[in-house]
Amino acid sequence: MSSTTNAPVKHKSISYAGWGYFFIAPFVIVYVLCSLIPLLSTFYNSLFENYMDGLKQVGPNFIGLDNFVTLFTPRADGRLEILNYTGNTMIMWIMGAVPQIVFALLLAVIFTSERMKIKGQGFFKTVIYMPNLIMASAFAMLFFQIFSSVGPINQIIMSGGGSAYLFFDNEWSARSIIAFINFLMWFGNTTILLMAGIMGIDQSLFEAASIDGANSTQVFFKITIPLLMPIIIYVVITALIGGLQMFDVPQIITAGRGAPNNTTKTLVMALNSYIGTSKNYGMAGAVSFILFVVTGILSFIVFRSTEPKKEGKKK
């Protein structure tokens, strides 16, 4: 605590500026070491043939873009891997995201309604947000138990005279359960984001609409939704970025196998098995690169759509 305090007052802003580097140094160093360099080396890996064939190590041999070609070439069983995994991820994401956005919109409108003045909001918000903080693995394990062949749901079906339904052996029921968990975990979070958006809308617009005789349906579709569009787009895209990373729930529910018949295996599950199980680092690199590019494009859209607003606020 010596040299800087003696600095001449007239050069205040210059003499202290160097401290900025001191404050950002830990962050920048750790980010470069733990994220940036690994990111680049991941991409570098995608250019090599490098995997375990049983106990035998194959490679690393430089093969250019062959891993990407493999990824986009149908396998012997006719399955196009990347399309299969991306398709599964997107189908399960959409199945969860549509009710997530619809429920969140309805709830946000209900909570912010000046007219209805809903009581017990604190309680309801606490309840709907809670699943967001619960461990996804625990949620998945719980639903696996609930829907297992000897679980409560099947016990109810059997006590009604039916026979046990194997929810995890049918692709659509398995996907629905996974999508439902995602919906349950995220609709509360989306509600709170949308509420903030609605409360940011100029209240006088609602009043003016009411005076002009608009009913609540008209207000919702003609005022709330259009003015909320930027934040809805933001919520959808960030949810999509999150959805692309879907892993914990299907991994736990299917014990990593994406059963039945690879219909619930997501992109990140494929990545995980390439890194962990098969140690196919070349293919893992290729999958990572594709995930990066898609996320990058989506993030760029978010970045573009939020940037002008921030500048507006500062002025």
Binding site: Y31, S35, I37, P38, S41, V268, S288, F303
Partner: peptide
Amino acid sequence: ILVMMIPTQVSALGFVQL
């Protein structure tokens, strides 16, 4: 801000190797 959205999974391979 730009790197904020990059999922950790994307650099996982390089990180595990490191």
